[in-house]
Design a protein around this nucleic acid. Structure first.
Lengths: 225, 225
DNA sequence: TATTGAACCTGTTCG
DNA sequence: TCGAACAGGTTCAAT
């Protein structure tokens, strides 16, 4: 719920006024701290089928082939479908695993296994919007990770409210500002990807899996319970 | 009428299914008239479910097991349903492919994929009758091919007209005369199968794809537009 | 048995 | 206008 004149709104306005080379930084001075390349990939307004009994999410082909790892559309081994598991963190840094594959019968990319659990947990309904991100830590050869976030379609601030279908959007270089709050400061960068520099906390322990998670929490803003 | 572009494909399919023997006898100017063993298999009066939203045709079990290739009713490989594709030519020598399998849930043999297209194209409705044939060329080891024909339930000549359900019949030795017209002569054979000897046309050109198609049309009679 | 999941199918729609 | 994409279905198996 962004109120006019709030910090978040100012951040939104500021970010909007920035060039495409915008990046976000958490304002750390610690050189060892990781920059997190933070890219919104795309959004999809959920269809009734996406949240109901079909237990699958159709990933629009243009986004699937642009942003997700390749899964074969061919039948290499007859009767054997090429599928991978994609992991996503939500804003609470819970991990969600989705089976991702291509269905030749419908000629579409889908999330299958795991998707319906996400729908149930998040109480998703048709016209809700899911947003996909890709995050990469810049310091070293760390694996990239995906994030997923949901926005209720009835939230009046989120996107004007009450939008119907046709909301599938390619984020490209656009910044999803509602997620960039709190500890985040905005800096300019030369690349088209967003870079969020996590502020180093004094009490931060040496890098370990959990720490990555903590940082990532901040990445999604301040609303962590 | 054949649409441009589809002709080659259909021809190719026909040639493939008919194999060397038939095309040889049809296209040759020599005395090698091709005998075509021509057997009506069975008929079925379509039910509302056969032509409506279920997208499947139930093949009466006694006919399926008697006339069609065996598909397993068991689960040989767990999770793998035994299904085959059956190809049928209609009286216009268009090829229709139906997925044929056994549904254990309903304990019935069915055509699934492709069936509803046939229904739409032929404007089939409940109580219409479909007739299935098997055709084999006698001169050589060619593949057999199936044919399918439809008869409107309101056509007064077809079978007295206005018959209701319960029309599923085993052709056995009965000859379906409405299909044996035009250039086709019917001869008696020692077997219970019908043998139709194609009359060799004087003006037959050397083997050409188009010629194969022409003759094949004659196999189903004279009503070719 | 009910739920989830994998795969298959089709009508509609839209560029 | 026609094919690609996909929304909304199905069957069938695993659990």
């Amino acid at each position: 719920m962004l109120k006019d004149g709030s910090y978040q709104t100012k951040l939104y306005e500021f970010a909007n006024s920035c060039s495409p080379g915008l990046s976000l930084s958490l304002g750390s001075a610690a050189a060892m701290d990781g920059d997190v390349k933070y890219q919104q990939l795309f959004r999809k307004a959920l269809t009734p089928s996406d949240v109901e009994k079909l237990n699958r999410l159709v990933i629009p082909k243009r986004f699937a082939e642009k942003y997700f790892p390749e899964v074969s559309k061919e039948e290499k081994v007859p009767g054997l479908i090429d599928a991978i598991q994609l992991s996503f963190f939500d804003r609470e840094m819970e991990s969600w695993n989705f089976r991702y594959c291509y269905w030749r019968s419908s000629q579409s990319y889908v999330f299958t296994k795991g998707w319906i659990r996400f729908v149930k947990e998040k109480k998703l309904k048709a016209t809700d919007v899911v947003t996909f991100y890709k995050c990469e830590c810049q310091n070293g050869a760390q694996k990239a990770f995906y994030m997923i976030d949901v926005a209720s379609s009835v939230a009046p601030e989120s996107n004007g409210g009450g939008f119907a279908g046709g909301f599938d959007t390619d984020a490209g270089n656009r910044l999803d500002l509602q997620l960039c709050l709190g500890q985040i400061t905005v800096t300019e960068s030369g690349s088209s990807d967003r870079t969020i520099k996590l502020r180093q906390q004094k009490e931060v322990a040496p890098p370990q899996p959990e720490e990555v998670q903590k940082k990532a929490v901040r990445l999604f803003g301040v609303n962590i319970s």
